[in-house]
Design a protein around this nucleic acid. Sequence first.
RNA 1: GGGCGAUUGGCUCAGGGGGAGAGCACCUCCCUUACAAGGAGGGGGUCAGAGGUUCAAAUCCUCUAUCGCCCACCA
Length: 873
Amino acid sequence: MEILDKAYNPKEVEDRWYSRWLSKRYFYAKIDKEKKPFTIVIPPPNITGSLHMGHALNNSLQDMLIRKKRMEGYVALWLPGTDHAGIATQNVVEKELAKEGLTRQQLGRENFLKRVWEWKEKYGDTITEQLKKLGCSCDWERTRFTMDEGYSLAVKKVFVDLYHEGLIYKGKRIINWCPRCLTALSDIEVEHEEVESHLWYIRYPFKDLDSYLVIATTRPETLLGDTAVAVNPKDSRYKDYIGRTLILPCAYREIPVIADDFVGMTFGTGALKVTPAHDPNDFEIGERHDLSRINIFTPDAKINENGGDYLGMDRYGAREAIIMDLEEGGLLEKVERHVHAIGHCYRCHTVIEPYLSEQWFVKMEPLAKPAIEVVEEGKIKFVPKRWEKVYFDWMENIKDWCISRQIWWGHQIPAWYCECGEIIVQLEEPSSCSKCKSHNLVQDSDVLDTWFSSALWPFATLGWPEETEDLVYFYPTSVLSTARDIIYLWVARMIMTGLKFANNIPFHTVVIHPTVLTIEGKRMSKSLGTGVDPLDLIEKYGTDATRFGLLVQAQSQDMRFSEEKLEMSRNFANKIWNASRFVLMNLKDYQPPEKFKYNLADLWILSRCNHVISQVNKAFERYDVSEVCRVLYDFFWSEFCDWYVEVSKPSLYGEVDSIRRQTIQHTLIYVLERTLSLLHPIMPFITEEIWQKLPGAKESIVVSPWPKTDTSLINNEIEKEMSLLMSVTVAIRSLRAEFKVPPEKKVSVVVFLHDSGKKRILSDNTLYITSLANVSEFKISLEKPEHSAMAIVEGVEVFLLLAGLIDFKKECLRLEGEIAEAKKELVKIGEKLANREFLKKAPGEIVRKEKEKKEVLLEKINKLENQLVQIKS
RNA sequence: GGGCGAUUGGCUCAGGGGGAGAGCACCUCCCUUACAAGGAGGGGGUCAGAGGUUCAAAUCCUCUAUCGCCCACCA
């Protein structure tokens, strides 16, 4: 039997096992129709990404689930891969080009894309390599990328099918435009943030009257694009002005006063400037009143030729200039402070410009409907359940999805325009126009929203649209685990496309894990420097400790993470290591026993162990990974190590009876082996390393069977008996400490009790108490000894014979304190039992328990008082 | 403006109708041959506040306060 080093050294162990597992192909999910599949598709990280705490948590969680199922005998597939991340990746490569003084426009589309692919080949696997460091048991042979050939075909097919079904259309609308990324964004890619700004009150003079109308706006610069001022038709203040003409300040255009229900009468002045090309509401008002739409911005948000004198200014410069001009012209009535939310690009945080342009959209309502139903019907469950409401709220108010992006990196839209005006949408490039036969066709230059392609992830990765073996066997997948901020962006859309194109739900459970925050409760962010790098943690504490530390905190609330919290986990890993070391050190002569001779403690730990197996399995069913961690931590440390290992020592060191010895050895192995298996999904490396050294170890813990509860070993009677011994032991230790008995000094103990059952337990297991509490003589007596300190546990009076060591004054005080405390409790219980309503309405079980408590307390007080009298005499 | 979540010992968090818990920190003792990344013992909380339901509330309901998150076209 090989003995372990004194302290656990994770680094040495981790690389060795991971490459071993790979070479054995344990993570490869081989289709076996006799077995059930269990599938998780990884939320594909961006190729630009590197592992952050959120990834570390989410992937530890997925690995935990997949490893457990693998051990349970499922064909467990964890399908990995990456996302091409259109805007993000394009930005990164453009930045690189900028260092060389180049722009993508200078390079041209084709060369630029070549550069991006080169970049991808070089850096795109960074994050998947990091996942290996985390111990993730992904099936790397099935790794996918959202721009793989097959995957791209799936994307095109979905687009083409939706188009021909009328669910994708092209339209001119106000969309969210990022003036820095120079592309449209969908509504959910815009992050709203409250900012302190102003409300400017501006006078718009009437053409034919010597007066003016005052409008209030947060964006004075857009007045250059105004084509009307609108008031509410019910607003008596303005009734007479409807239909009159105003002179637009700074632009000197004539615009009408119109009436529209949209306008609120209480905000501002009740008069609204209408800029159809730069505000979604104004756009709609414009449609109703047939107003012209004047675009005043260039794509990078500078004033264009429609802005007259302000041509070339950027939007903020133009604002200042216009305010100044208004002020000079006496047209600025007043300025108020005003807080409002404005949208920012989720990629570069530039302020979004509502911008009129022609884009492709997906009609969402028909897709959303069945996706709502499957969640309502419980076919897909969210964990925690409260996220279902979040999902419903969004789905029930869903808006059409703008899917075209004016960037180059991504899936180019499979639409071709003919000079005759015909639009051809199909998978392959057409050789000629289907209408006029012209060969002069140009493909739409836009690419699709990255989320359009990731929406297909659960089935496109399995080979769809081909009816592949993988697709048939592994789809629908089982669990999806992700962060809550992509419930709309990703989860909802996967459900919609899965139902539509793979004819089934994409997964039956959506686990929404908590967000990892800093210890101050702030979001972790690289740019703010508040992030923690999980690889640093792995380096410092080991992968297993890092995983345990994250998972034990993964409860239903967000977690405030700090590095110190990993110390607990590292210590736990070390504890596992050393307890195993102890076991292995005492196994040198081990032979699997043919006969057993169990003691109370053996039966106790076997019972506890099986309780724990069942608790762990239940917690897994609820996806309560934190509970799994806690149950195992508590059991291993506070029961197995603190009690069973300690109890086993005297027998292992001194016992001559070889059957007893073998029984203890067997029990140690039984418990350790099972605990390691239960811990393996959380802490894969240390458990494998130790497991391999246990007698009878087979191939690998990775593919070893998951523990099943053996109910025949669960014995509540035994657990109660053991707890009596533990209580007596603690009582003796406590008295020793109270009276400062040196640890090495052996003491004599006398216990006094009447209960014959308890007497038997104590006399049968004296060795536990004498060894655990350093007792030389342990007597069950019918006489109370003098000159001793006393404690009462479970009705047993425990006397520590301390002639000469006892400070009687102190002991009196202590006893009086205990009496007082017991009496306080007695009063409370007394009141309860005096309450007739309680006796009448509370369940009999509760009443009985309270009465029993009262008896125990009375007895205890009586005993304590007797002792007090005796000591004083 | 709407919704969701949180409020439990100094800190970070469990618990979720009938005995207030853990880890860290703190105090005392111990380098005992698995482990000082450890062991033994101990102190510390009227469970944010106010009402209500109940025989019984940290736990369920209502309201309030504070913090956080999400959604939203009031310019």
